Computed example of a mutant assay.
Amino acid sequence: MDKSRAVVAIGKGKPVEVVTINVPDPGPGEAVVRVQACGVCHTDLHYREGGISDDYPFLLGHEAAGVVASVGEGVRDLEPGDFVVLNWRAVCGQCRACKRGRPQYCFDTHNAAQAMTLDDGTPLSPALGIGAFTERTLVAAGQCTKVDPSARAAVAGLLGCGVMAGIGAAINTGNAGPGDSVAVIGCGGVGDGAVAGADLAGARRIVAVDTDPVKLEWARQFGATHTVNAAEADAVEAIRALTDGHGADVVVDAVGVPETYTQAFYARDLAGTVVLVGVPSPEMRLELPLLDVFARGGALKSSWYGDCLPGRDFPMLVELFQQGRLPLEEFVTEEIALDEVETAFDKMHRGEVLRSVVTF
Rank of each mutant, 00 (worst) to 15 (best):
A9V: 13
V147I: 13
A37S: 05
A141S: 04
D119L: 15
V16C: 08
G278R: 08
E334Y: 01
A154C: 04
A344V: 09
D25L: 10
L300F: 15
P315S: 13
G168L: 12
A31V: 01
G142F: 03
L45C: 07
T227P: 01
V16K: 06
V147D: 11
G61W: 06
P258Q: 11
C144Y: 02
F83L: 03
H246Y: 12
T137N: 12
D54R: 15
E17T: 09
L200S: 02
S70A: 13
G186N: 03
D180H: 10
A153D: 04
D55C: 13
T134E: 13
G245W: 08
F83Q: 03
L45V: 10
R285S: 15
Q104L: 03
M116F: 05
P57H: 14
L286T: 13
A203G: 01
R34K: 15
A37Q: 05
F314K: 13
A65I: 06
G245M: 10
T359R: 11
A241R: 07
Y305N: 15
T273H: 14
D25C: 04
T359I: 14
P213T: 00
K347S: 14
N87V: 05
D339R: 04
P15G: 09
A65M: 06
V190S: 06
L216T: 00
I171G: 04
S125V: 15
V147K: 10
L60Y: 10
T262H: 10
T43N: 11
